[in-house]
Design a protein around this nucleic acid. Structure first.
Length: 645
RNA sequence: GCCAAAGUAGCUCAACUGGUAGAGCAGCUGAUUUGUAAUCAGCCGGUUGUAGGUUCGAGUCCUAUCUUUGGCUCCA
């Protein structure tokens, strides 16, 4: 009989007969382990305990743990099955579509004959608990393609799943089903597995929410009901997760933005931000920060119109590809559109005057205000809006210059992001789509330049094959919000198309006219979105240069208001954003207000301070810094107040 | 856009099956003159998102509409 060799996590090697099950291996180690085991992992594949092992490799027995992603994966996937079974029990006629484990839990997409409402979740949870209590075994059934397909032939979604599974490269022509209990008697589901031995192994789960989801994520396809849940190895893990969610809620930029009075959004202009004075300070500080960074890198700032005649959008191609995303307007007999992007306008500036190869690379930057008609259901606070300011820029260069320009840009992104504390940035490289313009050799060159640039900047990237724009490949720099949701911020896109469409040309060394390549690039992307990310990242405790209020004067009593006013004025004259609390309140109350507003420096003044011509400094999160003269305070904060250091 | 939920005072939230819309904070006024996270008292504050409808009676039920929230594959 064939022997196979299993390398255990401690490095020891165990030789067992081929066909031995994971459960048998576990039992041979200890009966306790066999009892605890959920599944095994052989090389990169997680398998049921009862599956026969047939190859050599690294081997581990998966036991319940909140720290082991493999353990959570099987538990969650099995929990999704229990969810599906419960729904099928309670909503007879339900068709199941797809129920994977995901990052922080699981979901199941299904089509029920009557709508499942939020209030049904507790009923479903109750039924799930019963199924778990029954401790039903997950039994794997395997069928040939033919038999398997016959089993799901009346089920649109599962039939589709089965066909796609069979079409996959790694398909062995077998379709597996899992039945909780006995074949042809109990509930079953087409499923690749793996699963835990029995439902009783699920110790802690919770259904979280209910949502609509399209079959295959396709808008034109069926609208399914998605039930989200989460599951952990034990109650502690679940409670911990729920606690983290509650904590994340406190960081929500919409909540903090309101509390700190930064901005609001009105019902009559959905997706457009009204920046209040304090938010405006932040917008301007961020703009100035970027301005100072890039002005040193050879960018020339420009300002272009927000309203542009339709003819330009026809010429640029936006009317073709982007029409439904544009706001239109007309005055007199002219039809105009509010710009959704700044690129055509920058080309218009490029086109003024004859350009030589000596002018390249030419870098234009603009804090351009753009409007895009985003679908109603996609708006989200500052993160996804319809009106926003981009820290936009376009680099006109030759093909040879693409590589260094992209590389310089990646370094800039890395530098700026790390100054805000973002060090593990997700970078996505989107390569040539099927429908595209430009020669293959040009695409080769551009894709290679993007890839090399990320390596030079030591940024890991994720490949998005075929997801590039039709006009060129792109890099996207993605940041996460407090709930771990991805938001694209920075980007650089190579464009072989638009300069030509809009007639951009330069005279080359050969005295011939050439079309430049254009790089669209933005470091933070949208000022709105980036500030949203920053609010959540800092939880409102901004670096001093970005903080809307840097200091607040707190007179101990009304008697000291005049002195406080004097000090406030002195600070303002020195460029410090200082407020005065002249309310008739006790010091403790005033301090509390400052803490809630997350003001970095509190300056207490009373009898003592007046006599010594000082202020008593209390720094947020650091406490009492003692008394000092006003000029000492100005010096103390000078470097942290500087936008560019 | 689609599915599910929500919209009540400036803010956070109450109001059992339809029966006079309340509280805390904020604001205003007064008292107090305060030393490092909430001093006390009084007062003001609402066409319950909007428009219709059912009813003796609607915050509550119905219809429409606007907005917000969660989501709309991490591919059996």
């Amino acid at each position: 009989m064939n022997q196979i060799e299993l390398t255990l996590p401690d490095g020891s090697i165990r030789s067992v007969a081929s066909g031995t099950t994971g459960l048998e291996v576990a039992s041979s180690i200890s009966s306790g382990l066999a009892k605890k085991a959920l599944a095994i992992k052989l090389n990169e594949q997680i398998l049921d305990l009862k599956r026969p092992l047939k190859e050599n490799g690294t081997f581990k027995i998966i036991t319940p743990s909140n720290e082991d992603p493999d353990a959570l994966f099987v538990l969650r996937h099995s929990c999704a099955h229990v969810l599906a079974e419960a729904v099928c029990d309670l909503f007879p006629g339900t068709k199941l579509a797809y129920g994977p484990a995901i990052d922080k839990g699981f979901y199941y997409d299904l089509m029920s004959p009557k709508p499942i409402l939020l209030e049904d979740l507790s009923k479903i949870e109750k039924r799930m608990k019963e199924i778990i209590k029954e401790n039903k075994a997950f039994n794997r059934l395997e069928f040939s393609a033919e038999e398997g397909l016959a089993r799901v032939q009346n089920d649109k979604y599962k039939l589709d799943n089965a066909n796609r599974a069979l079409a996959r490269d790694d398909s062995d022509g077998v379709l597996s089903f899992y039945v909780t209990g006995e074949e042809n008697k109990n509930w079953e589901d087409l499923c690749a597995g793996p699963h835990i031995p029995s439902t009783g192994k699920i110790k802690a789960f919770k259904l979280m929410s209910i949502a609509g989801a399209y079959w295959h994520g396709d808008q034109s396809s069926d609208q399914l009901t998605r039930i989200y849940g989460t599951c952990f190895a034990d109650k502690e893990g679940l409670d911990n997760h729920l606690h983290l969610l509650a904590e994340a809620e406190k960081r929500d930029h919409r909540k903090i933005g309101k509390e700190l009075g930064l901005y609001h959004i009105e019902d009559h202009s959905p997706g457009m931000v009204f920046w209040h004075p304090k938010g405006t300070i932040m917008v301007n500080a961020l703009k100035q920060y970027i301005r100072e960074k890039i002005s040193r890198l050879g960018y020339d700032e420009v300002i272009t119109p927000e309203l542009v005649d339709k003819s330009l959008w026809i010429q640029s191609g936006h009317s073709d590809k982007y029409d439904e995303n544009m706001f239109k307007t007309n005055a007199g007999d002219r039809e105009m559109a509010v710009k959704p992007m700044n690129c055509p306008c920058h080309i218009e500036i490029f086109n003024q005057g004859l350009k030589s190869w000596r002018d390249l690379p030419l870098r234009f930057s603009e804090f351009g205000k753009c409007h895009r008609y985003e679908p109603a259901g996609t708006m989200h606070g500052l993160m996804r809006v319809r009106g926003f300011v981009q820290d936009d820029g376009h680099i006109f260069c030759t093909e040879e210059q693409i590589a260094t320009e992209v590389s310089d840009f990646c370094n800039l992104v890395k530098e700026i992001y790390s100054e805000f504390g973002f060090n593990d940035i997700l970078v996505k490289l989107s390569t040539r789509p099927e429908k595209r313009v430009g020669s293959d050799s040009l695409w080769d060159k551009a894709e290679k330049a993007l890839e090399e640039a990320t390596q030079l900047a030591k940024l890991d990237y994720e490949l998005n094959p075929g997801e590039g724009a039709f006009y060129g490949p792109k890099l996207e720099f993605v940041l996460k919000d407090s709930l771990g949701r991805d938001w694209q911020c920075g980007t650089i896109q190579v464009d072989f198309n638009m300069p030509e469409r809009l007639g951009a040309e330069y005279v080359g060394k050969d005295n011939q006219k050439h079309t430049p390549v254009m790089l669209h690039r933005a470091v933070v992307g949208s000022i709105e979105r980036f500030l949203g990310i920053l609010i959540e990242e800092f939880m409102g405790d901004f670096p001093l240069w970005l903080a809307p209020v840097q200091a607040r004067l707190l007179p101990i009593s009304e008697k000291f208001v005049d002195y406080a006013k004097e000090v406030q004025n002195q600070l303002i004259q020195n460029g410090i954003r200082a407020e005065l609390d002249d309310s008739n309140e006790k010091l403790g109350y005033k301090i509390r207000q400052c803490e809630l507003q997350k003001i970095p420096f509190l300056l207490v003044v009373g009898e003592k301070e007046i006599q010594q011509n000082q202020v008593s400094v209390r720094q947020r999160k650091h406490g009492d810094k003692g008394s000092m003269s006003v000029s000492d305070f100005i010096n103390l904060t000078a470097s942290d107040r500087k936008i560019f250091r």
